[in-house]
Design a protein around this nucleic acid. Structure first.
Lengths: 335, 335
DNA sequence: ATCTATATTTTACGCGCGTTAAAATTTTAT
DNA sequence: ATAAAATTTTAACGCGCGTAAAATATAGAT
């Protein structure tokens, strides 16, 4: 930097100012720097910069599982939002493993990020780790809530979204059964079950919940084997199944196909299946899957801007803010 | 570190040695450090460390698109391999955008990674960027090759894999047509087309290639619309279609379903569809997709260990090594 | 031309750690 | 017990940059 200062005819501290914020120096100076920059291709040493800065411009983005397209999509949105705001996103996937989430937060600690966007597993047992982490770094949660923790939460209003699809299903045919995994990690799954019960009660129809054994994150497989078992045994009380998420629905539809059960709402259809999340693959199932679309972009952007606001003002909000976006009904052919 | 040295009763330079390599200090010393570590929870400042080290322990992992499950899977394998070898992976997705790939390499430059694992788009236009980057940092390519560039390449032997499935299809029914996108970014697509032609010639049957217009990365949509158009018009010369990748096949099978065309090799089946890659969803299509499985784990691990070897020996290999793994046939119900 | 507010330069210190060389200490082998 | 080898300590420098304070230069307004 010393050398570059010499050849560019600018003093080192001013250069330092320029690299921190090009707008903070006089235009004529900025032009001089940028002219020199095209010739000498100097770039500040990230490590030296971050060592001396009070705070880095890094933002940690922690996702539970990149293999799930939902998270890779929302991760992408979040990354782009960070870049647009001049931050450097650091993407960490926990690979479906809560222990890895803990390790990721630990790793982030060393990187001294300005803030973190966290889509947590939401397991009760991880609460303490997250709580501790939040003390040191401003964190905005998204997708999955951990009650009362961190600065804010942004997600989908499961009560609204589930009610929307339950209402549609009741209006257009038999009231839906509810299919889910037995002890889900994800708090959204619990919310959706509750929402289903509430909504069914409001419509004055009987609720039927079916819970499958199985390991988390293997949703399609669970949907196919366990869902298939229920279909084969003709164990569902109605001909309409609302799955807790699309991946379960995808598995169940695969099972239905191989059992020769025709799914849909048209001629000759024997049953209806609906999902939740508008998984990228949902439009390509056979038949295409009726589901609830979460507003990926809105959630990602709101989470990001919420964090940026905290970072800009430099003070954590006095009240913990929860923002819930509405889901929208995506009517396709399966229900 | 000074303070921690005081309380742990170890001198600072020795501590420094310990954190660089715990094995490099006497066992009694190591135990003393680790005992103190449980009490005082000190951790070295990453930025200060990386500023002074000759080389960081970071490894850049650049993927073309995390939204594609193939890459998120292989990225996961690579990440775990890095961690196991004591490196810190830095995952960067180019979001399907070659320009972003360039930016990612640029960003990596500042992070001074010890090495980079790159799954490139493989566009000719990006060749120069990659070539320049390779001069500064050891790079191992995987998945997609860029002829003659970087230290090594690890991927799947498309000629072997395509021949395998062509042979199976010819043996078990009509010889396959080949369906792909018109001007694919990915060099594997070109290899597969060539492999198809070679293999068909060897079997003494006529080759038929169908190329769809459409934007890259929207494979399912292309498969459905363009593949559907061809199906509707009954334009394929045989009843068997080999798709250049599973995502095209998934789209085409969706189209076939909605057209009432029964796919498979059993009773009443009207046509066969096969894919390539063993996409995670392939087993859940209707019917389940016959395809070629690439050995994700082997490719990821070989690419990683190849890079580690270069880093350990400190010298780049004299000859550029290309490692191709065999694909394996996954027989399901679609063909 | 003069003044004032703003921007830049000069000078100097410190961040947290890697690294080195020489001296002191401990361990191992004889 | 003693010499040799291995390890640790002491002391000191440097990495590349942020930042603060004081001195100086510049720009716009009067």
């Amino acid at each position: 930097m010393e050398e570059f200062a010499a050849v560019s005819g600018i003093s080192r501290p001013t250069l330092s100012k320029y690299f921190n914020d090009p707008e903070s120096v006089r235009q004529s100076t900025r032009e001089k720097v940028e002219r020199a920059l095209t010739q000498y291709d100097y770039r500040p040493n990230v490590y030296a910069v971050n060592q001396n800065r009070r705070t880095t411009r890094n933002i940690g983005v922690v996702l539970p599982n990149l293999a799930d397209p939902f998270f890779s999509e929302i991760g992408r949105e979040v990354e782009l939002a960070c870049i647009a705001a001049g931050y450097s996103p650091i993407l960490l996937s926990s690979h479906g493993n809560p222990e890895q989430e803990r390790r990721n937060l630990e790793a982030l600690r060393s990187l001294k990020p300005a803030g973190v966007l966290l889509a947590p597993f939401g397991r009760v047992s991880d609460r303490k780790d997250i709580e501790n982490f939040c003390k040191d770094v401003p964190v905005v949660l998204f997708d999955a809530n951990v009650e009362g923790l961190c600065e804010a939460f942004v997600g989908t209003d499961n009560f609204q979204s589930v009610d929307l699809i339950v209402e549609y299903l009741c209006r257009s045919g038999m009231p839906p059964c509810f299919f889910e995994v037995k002890s889900p990690l994800n708090p959204n799954a619990n919310k959706r079950r509750q929402a289903y019960l509430t909504s069914m009660a409001q419509h004055g129809v009987e609720a039927h919940i079916y819970q499958a054994e199985g390991e988390d994150w293997g949703f399609e497989e669970i949907g196919r084997t366990e869902g298939g078992r229920l279909l084969r045994g003709n164990l569902f009380k109605t001909d309409t199944i609302l799955c807790s998420n699309d991946r379960l629905a995808i598995g169940m539809m695969s099972a239905a196909y191989h059992l020769g059960i025709r799914v849909g709402h048209g001629e000759g259809a024997m049953m209806r299946i609906a999902g939740h999340d508008d998984h990228p693959f949902s439009r390509f199932t056979c038949p295409s899957l009726t589901t609830i679309a979460q507003d990926y972009a809105a959630i990602a952007n709101r989470a990001a801007t919420t964090l940026f606001n905290i970072l800009d003002t430099g003070q954590r909000p006095s009240v913990r803010e929860e923002t819930l976006f509405d889901g929208s009904l995506v009517m396709r052919n399966s229900a």
